[in-house]
């Protein structure tokens, strides 16, 4: 029997939709342009444009006497950033951001390592949810909750007393620059809240980096004679640096820009974020607020340059 192999000819390009898809198939650049124009418009014009406008306003003049802004260009606001009062704010914020990033990295690494290398299926899903669950609750609620936890007579203090560690806590709270009168009004308390709130942003990128690490690399290292700690230092840690860098960019920049936690927890004293908030809200000094906005941008640029210098992105 003869087998008929004649197939139906494909329907010719009728209709505007057909013609459009044919056109897009033949001209892949047009297709790409159609895909990219909306996000580029959004990102370029609305986001980037307004950011530049904001920074431009940092060069405007604010008249202290009449409390008005005139579009007269001056570097006075930028110079004012280096006045001792403002400079202190920058150093305080920067110190906290560095401390929070370091602590988050140290805390996140073991969790991320366990998630990436030892969990599968349901256990892994459980860990993902456990890490992200705190992000489902409102940030403000969590910050307020911490003020209660850390308050005098709060849960944290109760635990410390149960274990008989009250003198130790008092010793820590007496250290200048770390302590304060109570946990909730100490630098330490503020630091704890920051680490708690930003930790998931550190765990997930490190976990992703470790997940990409082929098991054969670890076997090769052991095969060549490396003991487990040598494999960790020589192979695992260097290859997870891009993840740590990505996570620390989150924790670093989020801490630099935060203006709520510093108001709720910790000793008095402005952070960059709360300074911007006060300058443009209460005082109406938009140019000074804009000048302060420049600080985290510059700090993050410097941070990225250092991280790149250290070779964090070489393995990408």
């Amino acid at each position: 029997m003869e087998l008929s192999l004649k197939t139906q000819a494909p329907p010719p390009g009728h209709g505007p939709l057909h013609r459009l898809s044919n056109l897009l198939y033949r001209k892949p650049n047009l297709y790409l342009a159609l895909l990219l124009v909306p996000p580029l418009l959004w990102f370029g014009a609305i986001y980037f444009g307004s950011l530049l406008t904001l920074l431009w306003q940092g060069l405007y003049t604010f008249d202290d006497f009449s409390m008005t802004v005139t579009p007269q260009l001056t570097l006075a606001n930028l110079v004012a950033l280096f006045h001792p009062a403002n400079y202190d704010i920058i150093l305080r914020t920067l110190g906290m951001a560095v401390a929070v990033s370091l602590a988050s990295a140290v805390l996140a690494f073991p969790i991320a390592y366990y998630m990436a290398r030892y969990t599968t299926g349901k256990t892994k899903a459980f860990f993902y949810i456990a890490v992200m669950l705190p992000m489902w609750a409102s940030y403000i609620v969590k910050a307020y909750a911490w003020t209660l936890l850390l308050a005098k007579g709060g849960v944290a203090q109760w635990f410390v007393e149960q274990f008989g560690l009250a003198p130790a806590l008092q010793l820590i709270l007496d250290i200048p620059g770390v302590g304060g009168s109570t946990l909730s009004t100490s630098h330490l308390g503020r630091f704890l809240v920051f680490v708690y709130i930003w930790l998931p942003f550190m765990i997930l990128p490190i976990q992703a980096a470790l997940e990409r690490l082929p098991p054969s690399l670890l076997q090769a290292s052991a095969d060549l004679g490396a003991r487990p700690w040598q494999t960790f230092v020589q192979v695992i840690l260097p290859l997870s640096v891009p993840g740590i860098a990505a996570g620390s960019i989150f924790t670093f920049s989020l801490t630099l820009g935060d203006f709520i936690v510093p108001q709720l927890v910790g000793p008095p004293g402005f952070f960059i974020g709360s300074m911007v908030y006060v300058q443009q809200g209460a005082i109406g000094n938009m140019p000074m607020a804009a000048a302060f906005t420049l600080v985290p941008i510059v700090l993050i640029a410097i941070y990225l340059a250092i991280v790149k210098r250290l070779g964090a992105f070489d393995a990408l």
Binding site: S216, L217, A220, D223, V235, L239
Partner: peptide
């Protein structure tokens, strides 16, 4: 061992 996927350290 010479590994099937070579397992060279990329960094």
């Amino acid at each position: 061992t010479v590994f099937q996927d070579y397992a060279l350290f990329p960094h």
